[in-house]
Amino acid sequence: MTDRNIPVTEDELHAYVDDELPAERRGDVEAWLASHPDDAARVQSWRAMAEALRTRYDSVVDEAVPKRLDIERLVRQPRRWVYGAVAATFVAFIVGGGTGWFARGAATAPSAFQNLTVDAIEAHRLYVVEVRHPVEVPGSERHHLQQWLTKRCGWVVRAPELAGAGLKLVGGRLLPGSGGPASFMMYESASGERFTIYTAKSDAEATQMRYAAKGKESTLFWADDGVVYAVVSTGADRGRLTQIAQAVYDQLEKKG
């Protein structure tokens, strides 16, 4: 038997929204919501967000976690560069940027970019559908997030301010990359549209911005000072993706 006087926690509210709350506690939570309109409004907002994400990203919600991001596999053996069919698929989609696109140096070997786009898009597809745990560190802790990722990755990691493009920082996380750690940050619009920024160390010193796409996912990516940056979206048109990627690039350049 449960005590309805016990305050309902935020974890319980999330579990209620996800239909994961124990049956014996459900009545208590519903009674709590009936007498706490602020929490009831939050629950309604979360449900609306979950529905919007399901509608937008339904095609990838039930996909298996890519083997490249399987933690147990990563612990058992070191990461290797991706070869074969998966990486080869991206060759057809990699397009050099136009002459006006941030030409910073000679193009690098395609394999480095193939691996980056595979990693960036797989990470995007894995986490973009998450409602409760899309990130490790929330956007409200931007300063801590930047310091933590900078320390763990070994290069200066910044979370660009993208409010001008209608995006709010959801937060970020540390991921295993092809050649070491990688940083991953997620942004979201008021309508639930999500973009992610993936950065990883690379042999590429500087390149033009390039475009790659696979299925509904697309990315604009470039290298600067030995770090590769990829801005990824699901379903956004190339113009919108370009707007976000250029905003990211401009801010990183100004603070570089």
Rank of each mutant, 00 (worst) to 15 (best):
A163T: 11
V75K: 14
D203P: 09
A247S: 15
L126E: 03
E24P: 01
L145Y: 05
D18V: 03
E161I: 09
V232F: 07
R125S: 03
G100H: 12
V156M: 12
L33Y: 10
S140N: 10
I71V: 13
E188R: 09
E217L: 08
T89D: 10
P37D: 07
A112F: 15
A213W: 04
E136L: 09
R158N: 08
R68V: 11
W222I: 02
E30M: 07
S140R: 15
W46P: 07
F184A: 00
S35W: 02
T196Y: 01
D119K: 00
E188K: 06
D39P: 03
E161T: 13
D11Y: 05
S178E: 00
A92L: 05
F90G: 03
T89S: 15
Y57N: 12
V228D: 04
H143A: 14
G98N: 15
G171Q: 06
A200F: 00
R132G: 02
A106W: 06
S189Y: 01
V43D: 00
P110N: 09
H143K: 14
E122N: 11
T196C: 01
E20T: 12
A204Q: 03
V43P: 04
A107K: 13
A206F: 07
Y211R: 13
M1D: 06
P66G: 06
H133M: 11
P37M: 04
L162Q: 02
G179M: 11
Y16C: 06
A182E: 00
G98T: 11
T234H: 14
Y249F: 12
V170I: 11
V86H: 11
G96W: 09
P37G: 04
R173K: 15
P138K: 11
R54H: 13
T242L: 12
M1E: 07
T199V: 06
